[in-house]
């Protein structure tokens, strides 16, 4: 039984390989989805056809063909339009709590659980 699971695990992992070769258009879409269309209401530029969205889309494509990576593109856009334009807030001092609190919550939860489990064992 355990062997079967082991082999299946390997097989499942092997099926992952195709992800590694991410092509440009997928990267472009991923970036588009992370950029807010500033002239729309709550839309990403991937979802919008406004002139603004079209312009930013071509800017992003240009930057990619210049060999810029995701982070550089976001930095470029934030410096021009402010952090408001990126949907995924970057990890910096003002945003620290946003990223840290959920994980702190997880750590405390696990600690609480383990502590209680041990207490119960000792009581037995």
């Amino acid at each position: 039984m355990k062997k079967i699971i082991f082999y299946l695990l390997i097989l499942n992992l092997l099926s992952l390989n195709s992800v590694m070769s991410q092509n440009f258009s997928q990267l472009e879409i991923k970036i588009f989805k992370n950029i807010r269309c500033l002239v729309c209401q709550g839309q990403s530029i991937a979802d919008s056809n406004s002139d603004f969205a079209q312009t930013i889309k071509s800017v992003v494509s240009d930057k990619i063909s210049q060999g810029k990576n995701e982070k550089e593109i976001y930095n470029f856009l934030s410096s021009k339009y402010g952090d408001w334009i990126v949907y995924k807030p970057s990890l910096n001092i003002p945003n620290l709590m946003l990223w840290v609190i959920p994980y702190l919550f997880v750590i405390f939860g696990v600690m609480f659980f383990l502590k209680n489990l041990r207490k119960k064992r000792q009581n037995k």
Binding site: K33, N34, R36, S44, G82, D83, W84, I85, V86, Y87, K88, P89, P94, N95, M97, L98
Partner: peptide
């Protein structure tokens, strides 16, 4: 609510969207 917080404290407007 985090965007309200950063706007008041750090005076920066951020978006927290689906990727987060």
């Amino acid at each position: 609510v985090y965007p309200i917080f950063t706007e008041v404290i750090f005076n920066t407007k951020i978006s927290v969207g689906p990727p987060f």
